[in-house]
Design a protein around this nucleic acid. Structure first.
Lengths: 200, 200
DNA sequence: AATAGCGGGTGACAGATGTCACCTTGCTAG
DNA sequence: CTAGCAAGGTGACATCTGTCACCCGCTATT
Protein backbone atom coordinates (compact mmCIF):
# COMPACT_ATOMS: atom_id res chain seq x y z
CA UNK A 1 0.00 0.00 0.00
CA UNK A 2 1.40 3.39 -1.03
CA UNK A 3 0.52 6.10 1.46
CA UNK A 4 0.43 9.60 -0.01
CA UNK A 5 -0.33 13.21 0.89
CA UNK A 6 -1.64 15.65 -1.69
CA UNK A 7 -0.70 19.34 -1.54
CA UNK A 8 -2.46 21.63 -4.01
CA UNK A 9 -4.07 25.01 -3.46
CA UNK A 10 -6.92 24.65 -5.93
CA UNK A 11 -9.51 22.73 -3.94
CA UNK A 12 -11.26 21.48 -7.00
CA UNK A 13 -8.19 19.78 -8.42
CA UNK A 14 -7.08 18.63 -4.99
CA UNK A 15 -10.40 16.97 -4.28
CA UNK A 16 -10.60 15.46 -7.74
CA UNK A 17 -7.09 14.02 -7.50
CA UNK A 18 -7.80 12.58 -4.09
CA UNK A 19 -10.96 10.83 -5.30
CA UNK A 20 -9.24 9.60 -8.42
CA UNK A 21 -6.22 8.16 -6.64
CA UNK A 22 -8.29 6.66 -3.86
CA UNK A 23 -9.93 4.48 -6.48
CA UNK A 24 -6.60 2.71 -7.02
CA UNK A 25 -6.30 -0.42 -4.89
CA UNK A 26 -2.72 0.12 -3.85
CA UNK A 27 -2.88 3.85 -3.05
CA UNK A 28 -4.14 5.51 0.10
CA UNK A 29 -4.54 9.26 0.47
CA UNK A 30 -3.77 9.85 4.14
CA UNK A 31 -4.10 13.64 4.17
CA UNK A 32 -4.51 16.76 2.03
CA UNK A 33 -2.90 20.19 2.32
CA UNK A 34 -3.86 23.47 0.69
CA UNK A 35 -0.54 25.26 1.10
CA UNK A 36 3.16 24.60 1.56
CA UNK A 37 3.34 25.12 5.30
CA UNK A 38 0.46 22.75 5.94
CA UNK A 39 2.03 20.18 3.63
CA UNK A 40 5.24 20.21 5.63
CA UNK A 41 3.44 19.75 8.94
CA UNK A 42 1.31 16.93 7.65
CA UNK A 43 4.27 15.10 6.13
CA UNK A 44 6.10 15.30 9.44
CA UNK A 45 3.04 13.92 11.24
CA UNK A 46 2.25 11.07 8.88
CA UNK A 47 5.55 10.36 7.08
CA UNK A 48 3.78 9.11 3.94
CA UNK A 49 5.62 7.30 1.16
CA UNK A 50 5.07 10.09 -1.33
CA UNK A 51 4.14 13.78 -1.21
CA UNK A 52 2.32 14.78 -4.37
CA UNK A 53 2.59 18.56 -4.59
CA UNK A 54 2.00 21.61 -6.76
CA UNK A 55 4.75 24.24 -7.03
CA UNK A 56 2.95 27.55 -6.79
CA UNK A 57 1.13 27.63 -3.47
CA UNK A 58 0.70 30.13 -0.64
CA UNK A 59 3.27 30.32 2.20
CA UNK A 60 5.82 27.91 0.74
CA UNK A 61 6.25 26.50 -2.74
CA UNK A 62 6.36 22.79 -3.40
CA UNK A 63 10.06 23.16 -4.08
CA UNK A 64 10.61 24.83 -0.72
CA UNK A 65 8.85 21.94 0.97
CA UNK A 66 10.98 19.42 -0.92
CA UNK A 67 14.15 21.22 0.12
CA UNK A 68 13.16 21.20 3.77
CA UNK A 69 12.26 17.53 3.67
CA UNK A 70 15.64 16.78 2.12
CA UNK A 71 17.42 18.76 4.83
CA UNK A 72 15.61 16.88 7.57
CA UNK A 73 16.42 13.60 5.78
CA UNK A 74 12.79 12.63 5.62
CA UNK A 75 12.12 9.26 3.95
CA UNK A 76 9.13 10.76 2.12
CA UNK A 77 9.67 11.03 -1.62
CA UNK A 78 8.47 14.12 -3.44
CA UNK A 79 6.62 14.29 -6.74
CA UNK A 80 5.81 17.64 -8.34
CA UNK A 81 2.67 18.24 -10.40
CA UNK A 82 2.61 21.64 -12.02
CA UNK A 83 1.21 23.72 -14.85
CA UNK A 84 4.59 25.07 -15.81
CA UNK A 85 7.21 23.46 -18.01
CA UNK A 86 9.79 26.01 -16.97
CA UNK A 87 13.44 24.93 -17.10
CA UNK A 88 14.30 26.90 -13.96
CA UNK A 89 11.65 25.09 -11.95
CA UNK A 90 12.85 21.69 -13.02
CA UNK A 91 16.45 22.56 -12.21
CA UNK A 92 15.54 23.78 -8.74
CA UNK A 93 13.29 20.79 -8.16
CA UNK A 94 16.11 18.44 -9.07
CA UNK A 95 18.54 20.06 -6.67
CA UNK A 96 15.88 19.88 -3.94
CA UNK A 97 15.87 16.12 -4.28
CA UNK A 98 12.54 15.82 -6.10
CA UNK A 99 12.05 12.45 -7.77
CA UNK A 100 9.06 13.09 -10.00
CA UNK A 101 8.13 16.09 -12.16
CA UNK A 102 4.94 15.82 -14.21
CA UNK A 103 2.71 18.39 -15.85
CA UNK A 104 -0.96 19.06 -15.33
CA UNK A 105 -1.12 18.56 -19.08
CA UNK A 106 -0.36 14.88 -18.70
CA UNK A 107 -3.24 12.41 -19.08
CA UNK A 108 -4.84 11.58 -15.75
CA UNK A 109 -4.51 7.84 -16.37
CA UNK A 110 -0.73 8.01 -16.24
CA UNK A 111 -0.64 9.75 -12.88
CA UNK A 112 -1.02 6.64 -10.74
CA UNK A 113 1.70 4.87 -12.71
CA UNK A 114 4.13 7.74 -12.29
CA UNK A 115 3.27 7.80 -8.61
CA UNK A 116 4.10 4.10 -8.24
CA UNK A 117 7.44 4.60 -9.95
CA UNK A 118 8.35 7.47 -7.66
CA UNK A 119 7.25 5.43 -4.62
CA UNK A 120 9.68 2.73 -5.66
CA UNK A 121 12.50 5.24 -5.92
CA UNK A 122 12.52 5.72 -9.70
CA UNK A 123 13.08 9.09 -11.32
CA UNK A 124 10.12 10.29 -13.40
CA UNK A 125 10.64 13.42 -15.49
CA UNK A 126 8.15 14.67 -18.04
CA UNK A 127 9.67 13.85 -21.41
CA UNK A 128 11.09 16.81 -23.28
CA UNK A 129 11.63 18.82 -20.13
CA UNK A 130 15.09 17.55 -19.32
CA UNK A 131 16.53 18.81 -22.59
CA UNK A 132 14.92 22.20 -22.18
CA UNK A 133 16.60 22.62 -18.81
CA UNK A 134 19.92 21.56 -20.24
CA UNK A 135 19.58 23.99 -23.14
CA UNK A 136 18.90 27.06 -21.07
CA UNK A 137 20.53 27.31 -17.66
CA UNK A 138 19.67 30.27 -15.46
CA UNK A 139 22.00 33.15 -16.39
CA UNK A 140 20.95 35.51 -13.60
CA UNK A 141 22.81 36.27 -10.39
CA UNK A 142 20.83 36.54 -7.15
CA UNK A 143 21.09 40.32 -7.15
CA UNK A 144 19.88 40.56 -10.72
CA UNK A 145 16.97 38.28 -9.97
CA UNK A 146 16.00 40.28 -6.91
CA UNK A 147 16.11 43.59 -8.74
CA UNK A 148 14.32 42.26 -11.79
CA UNK A 149 11.51 41.04 -9.56
CA UNK A 150 11.00 44.53 -8.18
CA UNK A 151 11.31 46.17 -11.59
CA UNK A 152 8.64 43.81 -12.86
CA UNK A 153 6.17 45.35 -10.43
CA UNK A 154 6.67 48.72 -12.08
CA UNK A 155 8.93 50.20 -9.41
CA UNK A 156 11.41 52.90 -10.42
CA UNK A 157 15.17 52.61 -10.03
CA UNK A 158 15.02 54.99 -7.11
CA UNK A 159 12.42 52.99 -5.20
CA UNK A 160 14.22 49.73 -5.80
CA UNK A 161 17.46 51.31 -4.62
CA UNK A 162 15.83 52.46 -1.38
CA UNK A 163 14.43 49.04 -0.60
CA UNK A 164 17.73 47.26 -1.15
CA UNK A 165 19.95 49.97 0.33
CA UNK A 166 21.76 50.48 -2.95
CA UNK A 167 22.31 53.53 -5.12
CA UNK A 168 19.99 54.17 -8.06
CA UNK A 169 22.96 53.93 -10.41
CA UNK A 170 23.80 50.43 -9.27
CA UNK A 171 20.23 49.33 -9.80
CA UNK A 172 20.48 50.69 -13.33
CA UNK A 173 23.66 48.72 -13.91
CA UNK A 174 22.18 45.46 -12.67
CA UNK A 175 19.11 45.88 -14.81
CA UNK A 176 21.31 46.65 -17.80
CA UNK A 177 23.28 43.45 -17.24
CA UNK A 178 20.14 41.42 -16.84
CA UNK A 179 18.50 42.76 -19.99
CA UNK A 180 21.70 42.11 -21.92
CA UNK A 181 22.07 38.57 -20.61
CA UNK A 182 18.49 37.80 -21.53
CA UNK A 183 18.71 39.39 -24.96
CA UNK A 184 15.94 41.81 -24.11
CA UNK A 185 15.67 45.43 -25.11
CA UNK A 186 14.38 46.76 -21.81
CA UNK A 187 13.47 45.75 -18.26
CA UNK A 188 9.90 44.79 -19.13
CA UNK A 189 10.92 42.31 -21.79
CA UNK A 190 13.71 41.03 -19.56
CA UNK A 191 11.25 40.31 -16.75
CA UNK A 192 8.91 38.55 -19.14
CA UNK A 193 11.65 36.31 -20.52
CA UNK A 194 12.98 35.48 -17.07
CA UNK A 195 9.51 34.64 -15.79
CA UNK A 196 8.67 32.44 -18.75
CA UNK A 197 11.79 30.42 -18.07
CA UNK A 198 11.12 30.07 -14.38
CA UNK A 199 14.13 32.14 -13.35
CA UNK A 200 12.19 34.59 -11.26
CA UNK B 1 -30.09 12.51 -16.53
CA UNK B 2 -27.94 15.58 -17.04
CA UNK B 3 -25.73 15.29 -20.11
CA UNK B 4 -22.58 17.40 -19.98
CA UNK B 5 -19.42 18.18 -21.93
CA UNK B 6 -16.22 19.20 -20.17
CA UNK B 7 -13.79 21.65 -21.79
CA UNK B 8 -10.49 22.18 -19.99
CA UNK B 9 -6.96 22.29 -21.39
CA UNK B 10 -5.18 20.70 -18.44
CA UNK B 11 -5.66 17.01 -19.10
CA UNK B 12 -5.09 16.09 -15.52
CA UNK B 13 -7.92 18.25 -14.20
CA UNK B 14 -10.14 17.39 -17.14
CA UNK B 15 -9.73 13.68 -16.57
CA UNK B 16 -10.18 14.00 -12.84
CA UNK B 17 -13.35 16.07 -13.20
CA UNK B 18 -14.78 13.61 -15.68
CA UNK B 19 -14.19 10.66 -13.36
CA UNK B 20 -15.55 12.56 -10.40
CA UNK B 21 -18.73 13.69 -12.12
CA UNK B 22 -19.32 10.31 -13.74
CA UNK B 23 -19.66 8.89 -10.24
CA UNK B 24 -22.85 10.92 -9.78
CA UNK B 25 -25.94 8.93 -10.68
CA UNK B 26 -27.72 11.72 -12.53
CA UNK B 27 -24.78 13.06 -14.53
CA UNK B 28 -23.33 11.73 -17.76
CA UNK B 29 -20.16 13.07 -19.35
CA UNK B 30 -20.82 12.66 -23.06
CA UNK B 31 -17.58 14.20 -24.35
CA UNK B 32 -14.43 16.09 -23.41
CA UNK B 33 -12.61 18.93 -25.19
CA UNK B 34 -9.11 20.29 -24.67
CA UNK B 35 -9.62 23.66 -26.32
CA UNK B 36 -12.30 26.18 -27.22
CA UNK B 37 -12.70 25.25 -30.86
CA UNK B 38 -13.13 21.57 -30.06
CA UNK B 39 -15.64 22.42 -27.35
CA UNK B 40 -17.79 24.32 -29.81
CA UNK B 41 -17.79 21.51 -32.34
CA UNK B 42 -18.63 18.89 -29.74
CA UNK B 43 -21.46 20.94 -28.28
CA UNK B 44 -22.96 21.34 -31.74
CA UNK B 45 -22.71 17.61 -32.31
CA UNK B 46 -24.10 16.43 -28.99
CA UNK B 47 -26.18 19.39 -27.72
CA UNK B 48 -25.60 18.47 -24.07
CA UNK B 49 -27.56 20.07 -21.23
CA UNK B 50 -24.50 21.84 -19.84
CA UNK B 51 -21.05 22.80 -21.07
CA UNK B 52 -18.62 22.93 -18.16
CA UNK B 53 -15.68 25.02 -19.36
CA UNK B 54 -12.47 26.74 -18.33
CA UNK B 55 -11.82 30.30 -19.53
CA UNK B 56 -8.18 30.33 -20.56
CA UNK B 57 -7.75 27.74 -23.29
CA UNK B 58 -6.03 27.60 -26.68
CA UNK B 59 -7.85 28.78 -29.84
CA UNK B 60 -10.95 30.17 -28.15
CA UNK B 61 -11.66 31.08 -24.54
CA UNK B 62 -14.60 29.64 -22.65
CA UNK B 63 -16.23 33.05 -22.88
CA UNK B 64 -15.85 33.10 -26.67
CA UNK B 65 -17.51 29.71 -26.84
CA UNK B 66 -20.37 30.89 -24.64
CA UNK B 67 -20.89 33.94 -26.84
CA UNK B 68 -21.05 31.85 -29.98
CA UNK B 69 -23.50 29.42 -28.43
CA UNK B 70 -25.68 32.33 -27.40
CA UNK B 71 -25.61 33.75 -30.92
CA UNK B 72 -26.65 30.43 -32.41
CA UNK B 73 -29.39 30.15 -29.79
CA UNK B 74 -28.10 26.82 -28.60
CA UNK B 75 -30.13 25.27 -25.76
CA UNK B 76 -26.90 24.20 -24.01
CA UNK B 77 -26.27 26.10 -20.78
CA UNK B 78 -22.75 27.24 -19.99
CA UNK B 79 -20.97 26.98 -16.67
CA UNK B 80 -17.49 28.49 -16.23
CA UNK B 81 -14.88 26.97 -13.94
CA UNK B 82 -11.80 29.13 -13.64
CA UNK B 83 -8.78 29.96 -11.51
CA UNK B 84 -9.38 33.65 -11.75
CA UNK B 85 -11.73 35.77 -9.68
CA UNK B 86 -11.32 38.70 -12.03
CA UNK B 87 -14.19 41.17 -12.24
CA UNK B 88 -13.66 41.69 -15.97
CA UNK B 89 -14.05 38.01 -16.67
CA UNK B 90 -17.27 37.75 -14.72
CA UNK B 91 -18.71 40.77 -16.48
CA UNK B 92 -17.88 39.39 -19.91
CA UNK B 93 -19.16 35.96 -18.95
CA UNK B 94 -22.45 37.46 -17.82
CA UNK B 95 -22.95 39.31 -21.09
CA UNK B 96 -22.14 36.13 -23.00
CA UNK B 97 -25.10 34.45 -21.36
CA UNK B 98 -23.14 32.27 -18.95
CA UNK B 99 -25.29 30.86 -16.13
CA UNK B 100 -22.66 29.54 -13.74
CA UNK B 101 -19.31 30.97 -12.64
CA UNK B 102 -17.37 29.00 -10.05
CA UNK B 103 -13.73 28.99 -9.02
CA UNK B 104 -11.22 26.18 -9.02
CA UNK B 105 -10.82 27.12 -5.38
CA UNK B 106 -14.28 25.84 -4.57
CA UNK B 107 -14.59 22.49 -2.81
CA UNK B 108 -14.99 19.64 -5.25
CA UNK B 109 -18.07 18.34 -3.42
CA UNK B 110 -20.07 21.42 -4.35
CA UNK B 111 -19.38 21.15 -8.06
CA UNK B 112 -22.08 18.61 -8.84
CA UNK B 113 -24.64 20.66 -6.93
CA UNK B 114 -23.78 23.83 -8.81
CA UNK B 115 -23.97 21.87 -12.02
CA UNK B 116 -27.47 20.65 -11.21
CA UNK B 117 -28.61 24.18 -10.47
CA UNK B 118 -27.25 25.48 -13.76
CA UNK B 119 -28.85 22.55 -15.61
CA UNK B 120 -32.19 23.59 -14.17
CA UNK B 121 -31.67 27.15 -15.36
CA UNK B 122 -30.60 28.73 -12.09
CA UNK B 123 -27.88 31.36 -11.92
CA UNK B 124 -24.86 30.27 -9.86
CA UNK B 125 -22.23 32.91 -9.15
CA UNK B 126 -19.35 32.39 -6.74
CA UNK B 127 -20.23 34.42 -3.67
CA UNK B 128 -18.25 37.62 -3.27
CA UNK B 129 -17.56 37.90 -6.96
CA UNK B 130 -20.66 39.80 -7.95
CA UNK B 131 -19.85 42.72 -5.65
CA UNK B 132 -16.27 42.89 -6.92
CA UNK B 133 -17.49 43.27 -10.48
CA UNK B 134 -19.95 45.94 -9.46
CA UNK B 135 -17.28 47.86 -7.59
CA UNK B 136 -14.78 48.02 -10.42
CA UNK B 137 -16.09 48.28 -13.97
CA UNK B 138 -13.59 48.23 -16.81
CA UNK B 139 -12.35 51.80 -17.36
CA UNK B 140 -10.33 51.13 -20.50
CA UNK B 141 -11.28 51.92 -24.09
CA UNK B 142 -10.52 49.34 -26.76
CA UNK B 143 -7.56 51.33 -28.06
CA UNK B 144 -6.10 51.68 -24.60
CA UNK B 145 -6.50 47.98 -23.97
CA UNK B 146 -4.83 47.10 -27.25
CA UNK B 147 -1.87 49.39 -26.66
CA UNK B 148 -1.46 48.33 -23.05
CA UNK B 149 -1.29 44.73 -24.17
CA UNK B 150 1.61 45.50 -26.48
CA UNK B 151 3.36 47.69 -23.92
CA UNK B 152 3.12 44.83 -21.45
CA UNK B 153 5.33 42.75 -23.72
CA UNK B 154 8.07 45.32 -23.40
CA UNK B 155 7.60 46.97 -26.77
CA UNK B 156 8.58 50.62 -27.18
CA UNK B 157 6.20 53.37 -28.19
CA UNK B 158 7.75 53.41 -31.64
CA UNK B 159 7.23 49.70 -32.26
CA UNK B 160 3.68 49.79 -30.99
CA UNK B 161 2.98 52.77 -33.23
CA UNK B 162 4.27 50.90 -36.28
CA UNK B 163 2.13 47.87 -35.62
CA UNK B 164 -1.05 49.87 -35.19
CA UNK B 165 -0.30 52.47 -37.89
CA UNK B 166 -0.33 55.28 -35.36
CA UNK B 167 2.23 57.93 -34.44
CA UNK B 168 4.51 57.35 -31.47
CA UNK B 169 3.08 60.44 -29.79
CA UNK B 170 -0.43 59.07 -29.90
CA UNK B 171 0.71 55.84 -28.34
CA UNK B 172 2.27 57.86 -25.56
CA UNK B 173 -0.97 59.70 -25.04
CA UNK B 174 -3.03 56.53 -24.82
CA UNK B 175 -0.64 54.98 -22.37
CA UNK B 176 -0.70 58.14 -20.29
CA UNK B 177 -4.50 58.02 -20.17
CA UNK B 178 -4.48 54.37 -19.24
CA UNK B 179 -1.95 54.77 -16.45
CA UNK B 180 -3.91 57.70 -15.08
CA UNK B 181 -7.23 55.87 -15.21
CA UNK B 182 -5.74 52.91 -13.40
CA UNK B 183 -3.96 55.00 -10.79
CA UNK B 184 -0.59 53.60 -11.82
CA UNK B 185 2.70 55.44 -11.99
CA UNK B 186 3.92 53.90 -15.23
CA UNK B 187 2.99 51.48 -18.02
CA UNK B 188 4.32 48.44 -16.19
CA UNK B 189 2.16 48.97 -13.15
CA UNK B 190 -0.79 49.88 -15.35
CA UNK B 191 -0.51 46.61 -17.24
CA UNK B 192 -0.26 44.67 -13.99
CA UNK B 193 -3.36 46.31 -12.52
CA UNK B 194 -5.36 45.80 -15.70
CA UNK B 195 -4.37 42.17 -15.93
CA UNK B 196 -5.18 41.44 -12.31
CA UNK B 197 -8.66 42.78 -12.89
CA UNK B 198 -9.23 40.81 -16.06
CA UNK B 199 -9.36 43.88 -18.26
CA UNK B 200 -6.66 42.77 -20.65
C1' DA C 1 -25.48 76.54 -37.29
C1' DA C 2 -23.29 75.95 -33.08
C1' DT C 3 -21.20 72.85 -29.99
C1' DA C 4 -19.57 69.01 -27.57
C1' DG C 5 -17.20 64.66 -27.74
C1' DC C 6 -13.95 61.46 -29.57
C1' DG C 7 -10.09 59.56 -32.18
C1' DG C 8 -5.88 60.91 -33.69
C1' DG C 9 -2.05 64.05 -33.80
C1' DT C 10 1.95 67.64 -32.63
C1' DG C 11 5.49 69.94 -29.93
C1' DA C 12 7.91 71.04 -25.73
C1' DC C 13 9.85 69.82 -21.55
C1' DA C 14 11.20 67.06 -17.24
C1' DG C 15 12.40 63.02 -15.48
C1' DA C 16 13.41 58.01 -16.04
C1' DT C 17 15.90 54.54 -18.31
C1' DG C 18 19.71 52.48 -21.10
C1' DT C 19 24.73 52.50 -22.37
C1' DC C 20 29.41 52.96 -21.38
C1' DA C 21 33.74 53.73 -19.25
C1' DC C 22 35.95 53.67 -15.19
C1' DC C 23 36.74 53.58 -9.82
C1' DT C 24 36.96 51.36 -5.10
C1' DT C 25 36.99 47.64 -1.92
C1' DG C 26 37.31 43.07 -0.31
C1' DC C 27 38.11 38.44 -1.02
C1' DT C 28 40.56 34.49 -2.81
C1' DA C 29 43.52 31.36 -5.47
C1' DG C 30 47.91 30.73 -7.22
C1' DC D 1 52.15 38.61 -1.97
C1' DT D 2 49.49 39.91 -5.52
C1' DA D 3 46.68 39.36 -9.68
C1' DG D 4 42.19 38.70 -10.62
C1' DC D 5 37.49 38.82 -9.89
C1' DA D 6 32.98 40.16 -8.02
C1' DA D 7 29.99 43.53 -5.76
C1' DG D 8 28.96 48.07 -5.43
C1' DG D 9 29.45 52.69 -7.07
C1' DT D 10 30.02 57.28 -10.02
C1' DG D 11 29.42 60.38 -13.89
C1' DA D 12 28.29 61.54 -18.69
C1' DC D 13 25.43 61.12 -22.41
C1' DA D 14 21.60 59.48 -25.54
C1' DT D 15 17.21 57.88 -25.83
C1' DC D 16 12.72 56.76 -24.04
C1' DT D 17 8.76 57.76 -21.28
C1' DG D 18 5.41 60.66 -18.87
C1' DT D 19 2.91 65.16 -18.68
C1' DC D 20 0.68 68.89 -20.59
C1' DA D 21 -1.40 72.10 -23.68
C1' DC D 22 -3.33 72.49 -27.80
C1' DC D 23 -4.77 71.33 -32.89
C1' DC D 24 -7.67 68.99 -36.57
C1' DG D 25 -11.56 66.50 -38.55
C1' DC D 26 -15.57 63.92 -37.97
C1' DT D 27 -20.11 62.80 -35.91
C1' DA D 28 -24.04 63.22 -33.03
C1' DT D 29 -26.91 66.48 -30.54
C1' DT D 30 -29.51 70.79 -29.57
Amino acid sequence: MIRIIIAEDQSLLRGALASLLSLEDDIEVVAQASDGAEALTLVEQHTPDVLLTDIEMPHASGIDVARKLKESQSPTKVMIVTTFARPGYLERARSAGVLGYVLKDAPSESLADSLRKVASGQLVIERGLAEAAWASPDPLSDREREILRLAEQGQSNKKIAQQLYLSAGTVRNYLAEATQKLGASNRIEAARIARENGWL
